[in-house]
Design a binder for these strands. Structure first.
Ligand code: FES
Ligand code: FES
Lengths: 151, 151
DNA sequence: AACATTCCCGAGCAAAACTGTCAATTAAAG
DNA sequence: CTTTAATTGACAGTTTTGCTCGGGAATGTT
């Protein structure tokens, strides 16, 4: 039940893009350095993100990627759909083929619902939400440096 | 975000066990035939289920496996824990190591919560629940054979 | 025009995980 | 003592993952 690194990386990268001051393009190289993710691997991910219209690319010096839409309108499920194949817990949920012999499958409904829950949860969180959290945390760090930990 | 066949098979097998009339042991061979799952593969799964005290084994002729506890007390998360490694969507959620560089990780909280939701959902469903559904559906089949589909 | 920067694309590839198989053994019932 | 069936450990084939590499094409700078 693990998400692949593709999904993990893509979400982090998208937050990175949104955190950029002034909405200037962020280069893959920069993200690679900041997030410690292989540069060439990131290229692959951004190719998919672009094809899904989640980011726009700007070529040439000073270029990079920008979010294609307002961060509040980009939810995590869309990002994961873009770079990873599926959020469904079982192959049959996406009508590939039934897992079981002819009869009605006892467990199908469960996996269907589980898939829905996962998607609903991820759809309820946007890049904006994550960015806000990140900023709040940084501010918190400045205000309470003595506590060490933050709630 | 797929569950492995281990998880899928194990849940179906456990329902099989519970559906047995009279609580007699069900052999792996029988389950293999009924659910069309490789016999030797099932052996592996049941070894794990037994080590987790979810089933008890009875050797010799007429032997097989029985649920170790009442079906209502066996939830799906326990079964999946038993045969599969994890329900956590990211490795860092199980305190292996942080995914990110030194700082606080922007996305960690999300994966943590997602993992909780998944576990909560699966923990809310017992083998008994699934068995009841299965029986109701069979009864429904008998009552409304003309509809073909059931809600 | 030359050059540097950056995105773009496709192929390839090693390691891990997944999905099993096989052989040999032990325990119990009849 | 024979048959049934669980128990164990090793191993093999395939798929997926997580990358790398090599070369291009667009764009801005000098
Ligand atoms: S057909 Fe979907 S779980 Fe069996
Ligand atoms: S440390 Fe858990 S997601 Fe980064």
């Amino acid at each position: 039940m693990r998400l692949s690194t593709k999904a993990l990386y893509a979400v982090r990268a998208m937050v990175c893009l949104n955190l950029q001051k002034g909405g200037e393009p962020v280069s893959i190289r920069e993200i690679s350095a900041r997030e410690r993710i292989s540069l060439t691997y990131l290229e692959q991910l951004f190719a998919k993100l672009r094809r899904s219209d989640l980011v726009r690319s700007v070529r040439g010096p000073g270029g990079g990627y920008v979010l294609a839409r307002p961060a509040a309108e980009i939810a995590l499920d869309a990002i994961i759909d873009s770079v990873e194949e599926t959020l469904a817990p079982a192959s049959c949920v996406e009508q590939k083929e039934p897992c079981c012999h002819g009869e009605q499958c006892v467990t199908h409904q469960v996996w269907l619902e589980l898939g829905e829950r996962i998607r609903d949860f991820l759809a309820s969180i946007s890049i904006e939400d994550l960015s806000r959290d990140a900023l709040e945390r940084r501010r918190g760090d400045l205000l309470n440096p003595e506590t060490g930990e933050l709630s």
